[in-house]
Protein backbone atom coordinates (compact mmCIF):
# COMPACT_ATOMS: atom_id res chain seq x y z
CA UNK A 1 0.00 0.00 0.00
CA UNK A 2 1.22 3.50 -0.79
CA UNK A 3 2.75 5.12 2.31
CA UNK A 4 0.79 8.37 2.10
CA UNK A 5 -2.48 6.48 1.62
CA UNK A 6 -1.70 4.20 4.57
CA UNK A 7 -0.81 7.07 6.91
CA UNK A 8 -3.87 9.10 5.87
CA UNK A 9 -6.10 6.07 6.35
CA UNK A 10 -4.65 5.31 9.78
CA UNK A 11 -4.94 9.01 10.70
CA UNK A 12 -8.67 8.94 9.90
CA UNK A 13 -9.10 5.71 11.87
CA UNK A 14 -7.40 7.42 14.83
CA UNK A 15 -9.87 10.29 14.65
CA UNK A 16 -12.79 7.91 14.35
CA UNK A 17 -11.56 5.84 17.31
CA UNK A 18 -11.11 8.99 19.40
CA UNK A 19 -14.63 10.11 18.52
CA UNK A 20 -16.03 6.70 19.43
CA UNK A 21 -14.08 6.80 22.67
CA UNK A 22 -15.69 10.06 23.80
CA UNK A 23 -19.15 8.79 22.82
CA UNK A 24 -19.05 5.47 24.69
CA UNK A 25 -19.41 5.17 28.45
CA UNK A 26 -21.79 4.53 31.31
CA UNK A 27 -23.65 7.77 30.68
CA UNK A 28 -24.72 8.02 27.04
CA UNK A 29 -23.58 11.18 25.32
CA UNK A 30 -24.89 11.88 21.84
CA UNK A 31 -22.64 13.36 19.17
CA UNK A 32 -24.88 16.45 19.17
CA UNK A 33 -24.41 17.04 22.92
CA UNK A 34 -20.67 16.50 22.55
CA UNK A 35 -20.50 19.02 19.75
CA UNK A 36 -22.56 21.55 21.70
CA UNK A 37 -20.41 21.10 24.81
CA UNK A 38 -17.30 21.60 22.67
CA UNK A 39 -18.51 24.94 21.29
CA UNK A 40 -19.40 26.09 24.79
CA UNK A 41 -23.07 25.38 25.47
CA UNK A 42 -24.18 25.57 29.13
CA UNK A 43 -24.88 21.86 29.54
CA UNK A 44 -22.80 21.29 32.71
CA UNK A 45 -23.30 17.51 32.81
CA UNK A 46 -22.14 17.08 29.22
CA UNK A 47 -19.15 19.38 29.82
CA UNK A 48 -18.04 17.54 32.95
CA UNK A 49 -18.38 14.14 31.30
CA UNK A 50 -16.59 15.34 28.20
CA UNK A 51 -13.73 17.40 29.64
CA UNK A 52 -13.12 15.65 32.97
CA UNK A 53 -13.73 12.04 31.99
CA UNK A 54 -13.93 11.19 28.31
CA UNK A 55 -11.37 13.57 26.77
CA UNK A 56 -8.46 12.70 29.08
CA UNK A 57 -9.28 9.02 28.60
CA UNK A 58 -9.38 9.33 24.82
CA UNK A 59 -6.19 11.42 24.73
CA UNK A 60 -4.37 8.93 26.94
CA UNK A 61 -5.63 6.01 24.86
CA UNK A 62 -4.25 7.59 21.71
CA UNK A 63 -0.92 8.76 23.15
CA UNK A 64 -0.12 5.69 25.27
CA UNK A 65 -1.09 3.42 22.36
CA UNK A 66 1.04 5.43 19.93
CA UNK A 67 4.02 5.27 22.26
CA UNK A 68 3.75 1.51 22.84
CA UNK A 69 3.21 0.79 19.13
CA UNK A 70 6.17 2.91 18.05
CA UNK A 71 8.44 1.57 20.80
CA UNK A 72 7.67 -1.97 19.61
CA UNK A 73 8.37 -1.12 15.97
CA UNK A 74 11.62 0.69 16.78
CA UNK A 75 12.89 -2.07 19.07
CA UNK A 76 12.00 -4.81 16.59
CA UNK A 77 13.96 -2.91 13.95
CA UNK A 78 16.93 -2.26 16.21
CA UNK A 79 17.16 -5.74 17.70
CA UNK A 80 16.23 -7.25 14.32
CA UNK A 81 13.87 -9.48 16.17
CA UNK A 82 10.13 -9.51 15.42
CA UNK A 83 9.41 -10.59 19.00
CA UNK A 84 10.99 -7.54 20.64
CA UNK A 85 8.83 -5.06 22.57
CA UNK A 86 9.39 -2.48 25.33
CA UNK A 87 9.45 -5.12 28.06
CA UNK A 88 12.60 -6.81 26.61
CA UNK A 89 14.72 -3.83 27.64
CA UNK A 90 13.28 -3.94 31.15
CA UNK A 91 11.63 -0.53 31.02
CA UNK A 92 7.99 -1.58 31.41
CA UNK A 93 8.59 -3.75 34.45
CA UNK A 94 10.84 -1.18 36.13
CA UNK A 95 8.29 1.58 35.61
CA UNK A 96 5.65 -0.73 37.06
CA UNK A 97 7.92 -1.47 40.04
CA UNK A 98 8.27 2.28 40.69
CA UNK A 99 4.50 2.62 40.72
CA UNK A 100 4.04 -0.48 42.88
CA UNK A 101 6.48 0.91 45.47
CA UNK A 102 4.42 4.12 45.56
CA UNK A 103 1.29 2.04 46.20
CA UNK A 104 2.99 -0.24 48.75
CA UNK A 105 4.26 2.57 50.95
CA UNK A 106 1.06 4.54 50.59
CA UNK A 107 2.94 7.35 48.82
CA UNK A 108 0.38 7.32 46.03
CA UNK A 109 -2.21 8.74 48.41
CA UNK A 110 -0.12 11.85 49.15
CA UNK A 111 -0.63 13.33 45.71
CA UNK A 112 -2.00 12.14 42.37
CA UNK A 113 1.36 12.88 40.71
CA UNK A 114 3.42 10.67 43.04
CA UNK A 115 2.59 7.35 41.37
CA UNK A 116 3.34 8.42 37.79
CA UNK A 117 6.49 10.22 38.87
CA UNK A 118 7.70 7.12 40.72
CA UNK A 119 7.02 5.07 37.58
CA UNK A 120 9.12 7.44 35.48
CA UNK A 121 11.89 7.27 38.07
CA UNK A 122 11.69 3.47 37.81
CA UNK A 123 12.05 3.69 34.02
CA UNK A 124 15.04 6.04 34.22
CA UNK A 125 16.67 3.82 36.81
CA UNK A 126 16.20 0.86 34.46
CA UNK A 127 17.82 2.83 31.67
CA UNK A 128 20.85 3.69 33.79
CA UNK A 129 21.25 0.05 34.79
CA UNK A 130 20.85 -0.97 31.16
CA UNK A 131 23.70 1.27 30.00
CA UNK A 132 25.87 0.23 32.93
CA UNK A 133 25.31 -3.49 32.30
CA UNK A 134 25.52 -3.42 28.49
CA UNK A 135 28.63 -1.24 28.57
CA UNK A 136 29.98 0.22 25.36
CA UNK A 137 29.17 -2.84 23.30
CA UNK A 138 26.99 -2.08 20.31
CA UNK A 139 25.69 -5.60 20.01
CA UNK A 140 21.94 -6.00 20.44
CA UNK A 141 22.50 -9.31 22.21
CA UNK A 142 24.22 -7.68 25.22
CA UNK A 143 21.34 -5.23 25.35
CA UNK A 144 18.74 -8.01 25.37
CA UNK A 145 20.65 -9.89 28.07
CA UNK A 146 20.94 -6.75 30.20
CA UNK A 147 17.27 -5.95 29.55
CA UNK A 148 16.11 -9.40 30.58
CA UNK A 149 18.20 -9.20 33.76
CA UNK A 150 16.65 -5.84 34.68
CA UNK A 151 13.16 -6.95 33.71
CA UNK A 152 13.46 -10.09 35.81
CA UNK A 153 14.80 -8.15 38.77
CA UNK A 154 11.95 -5.63 38.57
CA UNK A 155 9.45 -8.50 38.19
CA UNK A 156 10.90 -10.11 41.30
CA UNK A 157 10.57 -6.77 43.11
CA UNK A 158 6.90 -6.56 42.13
CA UNK A 159 6.29 -10.12 43.36
CA UNK A 160 8.09 -9.26 46.60
CA UNK A 161 5.85 -6.24 47.28
CA UNK A 162 2.77 -8.37 46.57
CA UNK A 163 4.16 -11.07 48.87
CA UNK A 164 4.91 -8.66 51.71
CA UNK A 165 1.93 -6.36 51.22
CA UNK A 166 0.61 -5.29 54.64
CA UNK A 167 -3.00 -6.23 53.96
CA UNK A 168 -5.15 -7.83 51.25
CA UNK A 169 -6.43 -4.42 50.18
CA UNK A 170 -2.96 -3.13 49.38
CA UNK A 171 -2.20 -6.32 47.45
CA UNK A 172 -5.47 -5.93 45.59
CA UNK A 173 -4.70 -2.31 44.76
CA UNK A 174 -1.28 -3.25 43.40
CA UNK A 175 -2.62 -6.18 41.41
CA UNK A 176 -5.39 -4.03 39.94
CA UNK A 177 -2.94 -1.32 38.93
CA UNK A 178 -0.73 -3.90 37.27
CA UNK A 179 -3.61 -4.97 35.02
CA UNK A 180 -3.55 -1.55 33.36
CA UNK A 181 -6.42 0.87 32.91
CA UNK A 182 -7.33 4.32 31.65
CA UNK A 183 -10.36 4.60 33.92
CA UNK A 184 -10.83 7.81 35.95
CA UNK A 185 -7.79 9.54 34.51
CA UNK A 186 -7.82 13.34 34.58
CA UNK A 187 -6.10 16.06 32.61
CA UNK A 188 -3.35 16.00 35.25
CA UNK A 189 -2.47 12.53 34.07
CA UNK A 190 -2.41 13.78 30.49
CA UNK A 191 -0.08 16.60 31.56
CA UNK A 192 2.30 14.09 33.18
CA UNK A 193 2.29 11.56 30.36
CA UNK A 194 2.08 13.69 27.24
CA UNK A 195 5.44 15.53 27.47
CA UNK A 196 7.26 12.24 28.16
CA UNK A 197 5.47 10.55 25.30
CA UNK A 198 6.16 13.47 22.92
CA UNK A 199 9.88 13.27 23.71
CA UNK A 200 9.80 9.48 23.33
CA UNK A 201 8.01 9.61 19.98
CA UNK A 202 10.40 12.24 18.61
CA UNK A 203 13.52 10.30 19.70
CA UNK A 204 12.26 7.06 18.18
CA UNK A 205 10.98 8.51 14.89
CA UNK A 206 14.47 9.97 14.39
CA UNK A 207 15.97 6.53 13.79
CA UNK A 208 14.25 5.44 10.58
CA UNK A 209 17.22 5.59 8.27
CA UNK A 210 19.60 4.00 10.77
CA UNK A 211 17.14 1.15 11.35
CA UNK A 212 16.90 0.57 7.60
CA UNK A 213 20.69 0.42 7.35
CA UNK A 214 20.75 -2.20 10.12
CA UNK A 215 18.96 -4.55 7.70
CA UNK A 216 22.48 -5.20 6.39
CA UNK A 217 23.82 -6.05 9.84
CA UNK A 218 25.98 -3.94 12.13
CA UNK A 219 29.04 -3.79 9.87
CA UNK A 220 26.83 -3.02 6.88
CA UNK A 221 25.12 -0.18 8.75
CA UNK A 222 28.38 1.29 10.06
CA UNK A 223 29.89 1.16 6.59
CA UNK A 224 26.92 3.26 5.44
CA UNK A 225 27.99 5.93 7.92
CA UNK A 226 25.52 5.14 10.69
CA UNK A 227 26.73 5.96 14.20
CA UNK A 228 25.32 2.95 16.05
CA UNK A 229 26.37 4.24 19.48
CA UNK A 230 24.43 7.48 19.08
CA UNK A 231 21.50 5.65 17.65
CA UNK A 232 21.38 3.33 20.64
CA UNK A 233 21.37 6.26 23.04
CA UNK A 234 18.48 7.91 21.16
CA UNK A 235 16.57 4.68 21.05
CA UNK A 236 16.99 3.74 24.70
CA UNK A 237 16.23 7.26 25.93
CA UNK A 238 13.16 7.35 23.71
CA UNK A 239 11.87 4.01 24.99
CA UNK A 240 12.62 4.77 28.65
CA UNK A 241 11.15 8.27 28.73
CA UNK A 242 8.21 7.52 26.45
CA UNK A 243 7.21 4.09 27.76
CA UNK A 244 8.00 5.19 31.32
CA UNK A 245 5.59 8.11 30.94
CA UNK A 246 2.97 5.88 29.33
CA UNK A 247 3.14 3.07 31.91
CA UNK A 248 3.07 5.73 34.63
CA UNK A 249 -0.52 6.65 33.81
CA UNK A 250 -1.91 3.50 32.24
CA UNK A 251 -0.33 0.73 34.31
CA UNK A 252 1.14 -2.30 32.56
CA UNK A 253 -0.48 -2.71 29.17
CA UNK A 254 1.27 -5.51 27.33
CA UNK A 255 1.25 -6.79 23.78
CA UNK A 256 0.50 -3.49 22.00
CA UNK A 257 4.17 -2.98 21.14
CA UNK A 258 4.42 -6.59 20.07
CA UNK A 259 1.36 -7.02 17.87
CA UNK A 260 0.94 -3.64 16.19
CA UNK A 261 4.15 -3.81 14.07
CA UNK A 262 3.07 -7.32 12.96
CA UNK A 263 -0.28 -6.01 11.75
CA UNK A 264 1.31 -2.98 10.07
CA UNK A 265 4.31 -4.65 8.39
CA UNK A 266 2.42 -6.44 5.57
CA UNK A 267 0.80 -3.12 4.62
CA UNK A 268 4.22 -1.50 4.01
CA UNK A 269 7.39 -2.29 2.04
CA UNK A 270 8.57 -4.04 5.26
CA UNK A 271 11.55 -1.76 5.79
CA UNK A 272 11.96 -0.81 9.47
CA UNK A 273 11.55 2.91 8.76
CA UNK A 274 8.29 2.38 6.88
CA UNK A 275 6.56 0.82 9.90
CA UNK A 276 7.52 3.46 12.49
CA UNK A 277 4.85 6.15 12.02
CA UNK A 278 2.13 3.70 10.94
CA UNK A 279 2.86 1.60 14.07
CA UNK A 280 2.40 4.68 16.25
CA UNK A 281 -0.94 5.38 14.59
CA UNK A 282 -1.88 1.70 14.71
CA UNK A 283 -1.01 1.51 18.41
CA UNK A 284 -3.18 4.59 19.06
CA UNK A 285 -6.12 2.98 17.25
CA UNK A 286 -5.68 -0.43 18.89
CA UNK A 287 -5.42 0.87 22.44
CA UNK A 288 -8.34 3.29 22.01
CA UNK A 289 -10.52 0.51 20.59
CA UNK A 290 -9.44 -1.85 23.39
CA UNK A 291 -10.37 0.85 25.89
CA UNK A 292 -13.82 1.13 24.27
CA UNK A 293 -14.20 -2.67 24.49
CA UNK A 294 -13.40 -2.45 28.19
CA UNK A 295 -16.37 -0.14 28.60
CA UNK A 296 -18.91 -1.92 26.40
CA UNK A 297 -18.32 -5.55 27.42
CA UNK A 298 -20.76 -6.05 30.29
CA UNK A 299 -18.98 -7.40 33.38
CA UNK A 300 -19.65 -6.89 37.09
CA UNK A 301 -16.30 -5.10 37.56
CA UNK A 302 -14.91 -3.01 34.73
CA UNK A 303 -12.57 -5.08 32.60
CA UNK A 304 -8.93 -4.02 32.75
CA UNK A 305 -7.16 -2.77 29.65
CA UNK A 306 -4.12 -5.04 30.01
CA UNK A 307 -6.43 -8.06 30.07
CA UNK A 308 -8.13 -7.05 26.82
CA UNK A 309 -4.85 -6.32 25.00
CA UNK A 310 -3.45 -9.66 26.15
CA UNK A 311 -6.49 -11.46 24.70
CA UNK A 312 -6.16 -9.45 21.46
CA UNK A 313 -2.50 -10.49 21.19
CA UNK A 314 -3.22 -14.21 20.97
CA UNK A 315 -5.06 -14.33 17.60
CA UNK A 316 -2.33 -12.23 15.96
CA UNK A 317 0.27 -14.79 16.93
CA UNK A 318 -1.94 -17.70 15.95
CA UNK A 319 -2.28 -16.20 12.47
CA UNK A 320 1.51 -15.82 12.25
CA UNK A 321 2.00 -19.35 13.50
CA UNK A 322 -0.39 -20.70 10.87
CA UNK A 323 1.37 -18.71 8.15
CA UNK A 324 4.73 -20.00 9.34
CA UNK A 325 3.43 -23.56 9.17
CA UNK A 326 1.81 -22.72 5.82
CA UNK A 327 -1.62 -23.81 7.08
CA UNK A 328 -3.09 -20.46 6.07
Amino acid sequence: MNRTVLITLLGFCCLAAALLSITFGTAPLSLQRIFEALIGSDDPVARIILFDLRMPRALLGLSVGAMLGLAGAALQGYLRNPLAEPSVVGVSNSAALGAVIALYFGLAELHAAVLPVMAIIGAIFALMMLFALAGKSESPLTLILAGIAISTLAGAGISLTLNLSPNPFAAMEIATWLLGSLEDRSFNHVLIALPCIAVGLALLLWNGRALDALTLGEDGAKALGIDLGLMRIRLMLGVAIGVGGAVAVSGSVGFVGLIVPHIIRPLTDRSPSAILLPSALGGAILLTLADILVRVIPTSNELKLGVVTAFLGVPVFLVHLMRERRIW
Binding site: G77, R80, T215, L216, G220, K222, A223, G225, D269, R270
Partner: peptide
Protein backbone atom coordinates in the same frame (compact mmCIF):
# COMPACT_ATOMS: atom_id res chain seq x y z
CA UNK B 1 31.73 7.43 9.82
CA UNK B 2 29.62 9.39 7.37
CA UNK B 3 32.67 10.63 5.48
CA UNK B 4 34.24 7.16 5.24
CA UNK B 5 30.89 5.87 3.96
CA UNK B 6 31.04 8.26 1.01
CA UNK B 7 34.65 7.28 0.25
CA UNK B 8 34.46 3.51 0.64
CA UNK B 9 31.66 1.21 -0.29
CA UNK B 10 31.65 -2.14 1.50
CA UNK B 11 30.15 -5.46 0.57
CA UNK B 12 30.41 -7.51 3.77
CA UNK B 13 30.85 -11.24 3.83
CA UNK B 14 27.88 -13.52 4.43
CA UNK B 15 24.82 -11.96 2.74
CA UNK B 16 23.32 -10.60 5.96
CA UNK B 17 19.75 -9.48 5.37
CA UNK B 18 17.51 -9.10 8.38
CA UNK B 19 14.22 -7.97 6.86
CA UNK B 20 12.46 -9.13 3.69
CA UNK B 21 12.98 -5.94 1.67
CA UNK B 22 12.05 -5.55 -1.97
CA UNK B 23 15.20 -5.56 -4.17
CA UNK B 24 14.90 -1.93 -5.29
CA UNK B 25 14.44 -0.76 -1.71
CA UNK B 26 17.48 -2.80 -0.65
CA UNK B 27 19.71 -1.38 -3.39
CA UNK B 28 18.51 2.10 -2.40
CA UNK B 29 20.14 1.62 1.03
Amino acid sequence: HAQIARLISYLPQGQTLHWPLVVERLVAL
